[in-house]
């Protein structure tokens, strides 16, 4: 697979290169659209395509006007603030609750494990439109619709499955004799938790938190139903922008969001390597 053997016939050679070409095209399908919008967001004209100035690399064809538009727009700025506020608050809640639950779930004595697990995972399974409609009725009834608290709690529920799954997965490889060793050496339970358990599960907790954050940061269906004018988030602003009048400002926002996802991806990869190293798995490169 790695390289083509010298005895390969013409057909095998053709297949080898043909297969790689097919894979390259699929990769292009995956990544191409995301890369295309980056140059388009620097368009000097309000079009969604490359102008002839852009294609001839004429500096006049490029401009930062859509970024300027974005950074000077009051509604976009407040949506950034909202997105981060709601995202961070719901991530904190989901991470604390989810980690505690995962600790309980991965204890061997846990009763009704499978049932509880499927209840906790359900926000990930139920189609978002149904979740959003159900939450809309519920939060309206308790007067939390169109409030920050309502949106934060709703996003907490949506982020929790990711925290529970990643932390439980980290704990599944957890060596319970470590906690027993610490306890037998005289450490009180809280000390065992903070000095032994927590450092070992931190990579899982952080990647769960990142998943919860991106879930909230990217969520729009629940926000459409639950948020008022004040709680507009970036995705909601984009949703409205695409539906009403699409302007290249959205491409500038999209480019910035791609940059954010690259940062998140890098953090996750570093965490994965750290987690593998902590568990004593060396990567065979």
């Amino acid at each position: 697979m790695a390289s083509i053997p010298p005895y390969a016939g013409t057909l095998e050679r053709a297949w080898y290169y043909g297969y790689r070409l097919i894979c390259a095209l699929i990769f292009l399908f995956l990544i191409g659209p995301i890369l295309v919008i980056i140059p388009l967001s620097f368009n000097a004209e309000p079009y969604f395509t490359f102008t002839s100035e852009m294609l001839s690399f004429d500096p006049a064809g490029y401009s930062l006007r859509w970024y300027e538009d974005f950074f000077t727009s009051e509604s976009w700025m407040s949506s950034i603030k909202n997105s981060f506020l709601i995202g961070i608050a719901s991530t904190l809640l989901a991470t604390v609750l989810g980690t505690l639950a995962a600790l309980g779930l991965s204890r061997p004595q846990m009763p009704f494990r499978a049932l509880i697990m499927s209840i906790l995972i359900s926000p990930m399974i139920v189609p978002l439109i149904i979740s959003a409609a159900g939450m809309f009725f519920f939060y309206s009834k308790v007067n939390l619709a169109q409030t920050y608290l309502g949106v934060i709690l709703a996003h907490t529920a949506l982020g929790i499955p990711f925290v529970v799954i990643t932390v439980t997965a980290t704990l599944s490889g957890f060596d319970h004799s470590l906690t027993r060793a610490a306890a037998s050496l005289g450490a009180p339970p809280s000390y065992v938790f903070f000095k032994v358990v927590l450092p070992l599960v931190t990579p899982g907790v952080v990647s769960g938190a990142l998943f919860a954050f991106i879930t909230s940061f990217d969520e729009v269906v629940v926000v459409i139903f639950l948020s008022g004018v004040e709680q507009r988030t970036i995705p909601l602003q984009m949703w409205a922008g695409i539906r009403e009048q699409i302007s290249p400002t959205i491409l500038a926002v999209a480019t910035l969001l791609v940059a954010i996802s690259i940062v998140l991806l890098t953090v996750l990869e570093l965490l994965r390597r750290r987690g593998a190293r902590l568990r004593g798995i060396t990567e065979t490169v």
Binding site: I34, F48, M238, W239, I250, L251, A254, L257, S261
Partner: peptide
């Protein structure tokens, strides 16, 4: 972001 990917396909 889901909306970014949807936007790119519109473009």
């Amino acid at each position: 972001s889901l909306l970014v990917r949807t936007t790119t396909w519109i473009a």
